[in-house]
């Protein structure tokens, strides 16, 4: 009985805090994405600028580790039984990658654009993932070009 109560409390806390945290995070992501709207990050290796116009090129990177709440992990484990799209994890992946990209752009400073952007994911929080995916680490990196 107490176990069930504990479980329900965990789910409730996870749902409330998780929803709040996600909404807060997305608001901050949208705000910063608007701020960096003039700094394109592309996966192309070359750009149309003539070489002598490019003043400098340097490696920029950013990373983020995001986890999802207990409630979403629970619904994802239910989804595992029936199969189909696991929506709970979509926001997790989206948040981690966008946050990593934004941190990369923050590092780029007054560069004109970032070329050859790559996104990597890794797993360091395995002990936190006993029930499948729990958190996701994303690294974004690219070359920031500054124009003369």
């Amino acid at each position: 009985m107490y176990n069930l109560l504990f479980f329900i409390t965990l789910i409730a806390v996870g749902y409330l805090a998780g929803t709040f945290a996600e909404r807060y995070h997305y608001r901050s992501i949208h705000l910063r994405e608007k701020m960096f709207i003039n700094l394109p990050a592309v996966t192309m290796k070359t750009v149309d600028y003539p070489d002598d116009k490019i003043k400098s090129a340097e490696l920029v990177y950013g990373s983020a580790v995001i986890s999802i709440d207990y409630f979403k992990r629970f619904t994802a484990s239910l989804r595992n039984i029936f199969g189909g799209t696991v929506k709970s994890y979509e926001s997790l992946i989206d948040r981690a990658r966008r946050e990593a990209l934004l941190r990369m752009k923050e590092m780029a400073g007054d560069s004109r654009m970032i070329v050859n952007v790559r996104i990597e994911t890794s797993t360091i929080g395995r002990n936190a993932n006993k029930k499948g995916v729990g958190c996701l680490e994303a690294i974004a990196y690219g070359t920031a070009l500054t124009l003369a």
Partner: peptide
Amino acid sequence: MAGLKNLVGGELKGYTQLLQESR
């Protein structure tokens, strides 16, 4: 701390820092 944070979701700052230092 990361295990606890996994309950409510959000960024695991300790692990982010770990990743940055390693890189």
